[in-house]
Design a protein around this nucleic acid. Structure first.
Lengths: 190, 190
DNA sequence: GCAACTTCTTAAACTACTTCAAGTTTTTTT
DNA sequence: AAAAAAACTTGAAGTAGTTTAAGAAGTTGC
């Protein structure tokens, strides 16, 4: 059940038998029902989560009480509140399954221990974070330069597999506009 | 002249004499005049930059031909286009000095070599990226939940040292509104 | 110390998007 | 199969921000 993660890691570095075993020992496997939370706002985020199967999201609840999705994750993607994790401060985010999902959780204390025993993995996580941070720079670029309609079409063209899986109101909030406006874009009434 | 970086690294890991020397050998020191570019859109970003003294920014030029600042950096901060760096694809970003600055550049080829010789540094860069990505998650949260005026006051309260150093029109574009609107916020005419 | 350039301000007209409210369709539960 | 809940659509009214244009103030270079 840990194979997808091991495969993902081996795209970046190679592990021997012993290292793979140490890795396995640090991991926890979880199955999640749709809408089940991995993290609740107010909690310290003690884990990083790797999605084996399914689809999850990060979201916040804004001042008006609406959920605002800030990030999606599907297979082979890591999710966490990295600042809460890093500083061990309460999070503002929820992490929630959008579909029934299977995920791997690694707890910070086990992660730190694992990284001492298998320092090669520092490289893997550095590379994952480098890509993620780079993607986040691009995301800010698109938020700053594209109109709502452009962001919608760009997202659909870039990630067609997502559009099928996530409710529109979540996509609207991720793209930073209202669900009503998304309806209008789709109907060509903009 | 590399002391500030070595101090920064030693907040996260410790290096012996030999490792410090290998590090020094990989670094390039540069002085920059105000408005000088470290990266020009269209180029592949082959470096990561650490600011010793001064102030720099990432920006793009949007469809209307306006500069849009997406990131600021001051002392002890790393700047790069991490996706261009990672994938070795042309960048959409400019990296530019806002003040006369002193920076350390490390070229990707030297970085990779250094990380093989001093694998401990993988940990340093992982931790730097983890913090940066976490900060970026928070930034998206604020962009999504705060009004223009709230973003301005929040930025001023959180980073008072910046407001003195950067022109308002750059701050306005970083906060994702027009310079004219920033004038109105400051005048209390909103 | 003047000229040239850069940055900031103001106000009026405009627009991309939100909000509200009601109705329809789809999905889930029993 | 019915009932309940969740998700989507539509249109009218409102607003947070942009755009344009002109002038004022501040900086920099020679």
């Amino acid at each position: 059940m840990y194979i997808p993660l091991i495969n993902h890691i081996e795209k970046f570095i190679s592990l021997d038998e012993n290292e793979t075993q140490l890795l396995r020992d640090a991991l926890q496997f979880k199955t999640l029902k749709k809408k089940e939370n991995l993290l609740h706002a107010g909690q310290i985020c003690h884990h990083q989560y790797f999605i084996i199967k399914g689809c999850c999201r990060n979201f916040i609840i804004n001042d008006k009480g609406n959920e605002q999705t800030t990030q999606f994750g599907i297979e082979n993607w890591w999710l966490s509140d990295f600042l809460s994790y890093h500083n061990e401060r309460p999070s503002d985010f929820y992490i929630q399954a959008i579909e029934n999902s299977e995920i791997i959780a690694i707890e910070k204390i086990d992660m730190e221990d694992l990284l001492v025993k298998v320092p090669k993995l520092e490289r893997y996580f550095r590379l994952v974070l480098q890509k993620a941070f780079g993607a986040s720079q691009m995301r800010i670029k698109y938020l700053y330069t594209q109109s709502a309609e452009e962001r919608y079409h760009f997202f659909n063209d870039s990630f067609p597999e997502f559009t099928q899986r996530i409710p529109q109101y979540m996509l609207a909030s991720y793209l930073d506009f209202s669900p009503e406006f998304l309806s209008k874009i789709r109907a060509g009434k903009v």
